[in-house]
Simulated assay, not measured.
Amino acid sequence: MTAPLPRPTRTDVRIALGLLLLSAGSTFVIGLVDPEPGVAEPWPWGYAVIAAAALPLLWRTALPRTVAVVSVTAATAYYPLGYPDGVVMACTAVMLYTLVRWGHRAFGWTLGITQFLAVNGYELLVGQTFRAEAIGVVGWVLVLLCTGEVVRWRHEYLRADRERRAEALRTRDEELLRRASEERLRLARDVHDTVAHNISLINVQAGTALYLMENEPERASEALATIKQTSKDTLVELRAILGVLRTVDEGAPRSPVPGADRIDEVAEAARSAGIEVEVEVAGSPVRLPVGTDNAVYRTVQEALTNVVRHAGADRATVLVDYRPREVLVEVSDDGRGTLGEPSAGNGITGMRERASLVGGTVDAGPAEGGGFRVRARLPIEGSDERTG
């Protein structure tokens, strides 16, 4: 069972009916106004051929190649049959242009050249003459086909330009989303590394103060003083983070990014929580890139926070070893450690993310002989001797 023909588009209906009226009307007017002797009567078969050339254009959009073959064949056959010269060839012009314009280039060129050869070959074969008008027909066909090529090229160029603009817009949107995601991750790390660290110290010191309040009020007072200072620092950090969130066009930072030169402050905070902390510096200190410098500080800060909160340790050691191509940061304690690999909580995940941003790595796990150890290797690029 054959499939039904698709429904013609409005444009194709207008083109087909317009060509039918134009072709049939021109033949009728020529036969009425300027009849030539020996010309065949167009009714009914001449008009039937005109209809065969024009009406298939109703499906010009749906079946361009099939319609072109039928229409061009009918229009080509019209003239050798001896009917009055009309403009039925306009059907051929429309279909050849359509083929080339819509990308059927080889088919359109082949059909146009074949039509020209068929018409003039018939003239040579039957009449033994070559009509001078044939040269004009060649030029007409070439202009028609080249016009279709130019219009097609322009359409493809405009389409490619629209696609480029759409891709650029999509890429820009993706870049904005990526930057927003990275900023959220950075803020999450900052909140965890600073606020969570200070809150942990406050919690430990508050417990110490409650325990010592009655028997050792002096030490309880020291714990409360530490809580006061730590809470003040926490408020400063929170204001800084909220300031970034409120800023529409973020400018340069208003305070220096904490780096390796502030490790002693982190160690002192851990000491105030009852942990004996020893800080060792090996090698020749160099000026680190900002990202690496901050990663050193945050790694030590988070590792000591975990010592205070989870390790149950009495002593911790911080080692910062400046090597030719990297800086090694190691924080170890004498606590209870873990069985196997530690769970990837926010602290360890944040350390690894910061190290990854500067091309480094972080290993965390039980230390030999007990306790827990965090070891970060952070590359040094373009460093120079620290001045100070």
Score class of each variant (00 low, 15 high):
S332Y: 03
T230N: 10
E175M: 10
A106T: 13
D333R: 05
P289D: 15
E237D: 14
D161W: 06
A188H: 13
Y79C: 00
A166V: 09
A75D: 07
R354G: 10
R101E: 07
A52L: 15
S383V: 13
R184E: 11
G359I: 02
T11S: 10
L96F: 12
G360E: 04
T387W: 14
G350R: 02
D249S: 14
W109R: 04
A376K: 01
V119T: 12
L117S: 07
L124D: 06
S23G: 11
V358L: 09
D384H: 12
G127S: 05
V143G: 14
A240R: 08
Q205T: 01
L185G: 01
A188Y: 00
A188R: 09
E381S: 13
L158G: 00
A106L: 13
R172F: 01
P324A: 07
R170E: 13
R164H: 09
G340V: 05
G359D: 12
L145V: 12
D190T: 08
V49L: 15
S332K: 05
A54F: 09
T247P: 01
D314M: 00
I263E: 03
A180V: 08
L242N: 11
L55H: 11
L124R: 15
R323Y: 03
V204K: 05
A68I: 14
G335R: 03
L185C: 00
V143Y: 02
Y211V: 05
A74I: 03
T11K: 07
S272G: 09
N120P: 00
D12F: 08
D34T: 11
